[in-house]
Computed example of a mutant assay.
Amino acid sequence: MAIVIYTVLKEFFVEIHGHAVKARILSPVHDANTFTFQISLFFKSKSAADANEPASTFTSYATAERHLLSYLEDFQNTLDLGGEVAQGSNF
């Protein structure tokens, strides 16, 4: 298994319903055209047994940032409607 080293391009710190959520936009050191994001907590809706964990890569920073902000908004909306918080990435 190859080791991938990432560069953290931007970090966000938000509070959603009293839960501190940390998020990062990352890019592999060897590939400046690939971006992903990582979240410290995930959300579960009332109808889903599993947490909604984002697992996508993007070819532009702007697209990754837009998807991250959309995920955070969905997180807020899900908790507003009675969803739950699940543990996410430890970083």
Rank of each mutant, 00 (worst) to 15 (best):
T59I: 05
L26T: 09
P28G: 08
D80Q: 15
T57I: 15
F37M: 03
L69E: 09
F35Q: 15
T63S: 04
F35M: 12
G18D: 08
V14P: 04
S27K: 13
R24W: 10
F37H: 03
A20N: 10
P54M: 15
F42L: 08
L69I: 06
N52G: 06
I3H: 05
F13I: 05
I3S: 05
F12N: 03
I25L: 11
I5A: 07
S40V: 00
G18F: 09
K44R: 13
L79V: 00
A32N: 15
L69P: 03
K22I: 05
T78R: 01
N90V: 10
N52L: 12
T59H: 14
P28N: 13
K44D: 06
T78A: 02
A2C: 00
H67K: 12
A49T: 04
E73R: 07
K22E: 09
I3T: 03
T36D: 13
L79I: 01
G88L: 08
G83K: 15
G82S: 13
T34D: 14
E53G: 05
K44C: 07
L26W: 13
S47M: 11
L69K: 10
Q87H: 09
F75D: 02
F12M: 07
G18P: 00
H30A: 14
I39S: 01
A64F: 08
S56L: 12
M1T: 01
V85D: 07
L72Q: 03
H30W: 13
K44Q: 14
S47V: 05
N33M: 15
T78E: 03
G88Q: 12
T34I: 10
N52M: 12
T7F: 14
D74E: 14
I39K: 04
E53S: 11
A62P: 04
M1N: 00
L69A: 06
V21E: 05
E15C: 05
E65P: 02
L79F: 02
P28M: 15
Q76P: 02
E11N: 13
I39Q: 04
S40Q: 02
Y71G: 02
S47K: 15
N33L: 11
V29N: 14
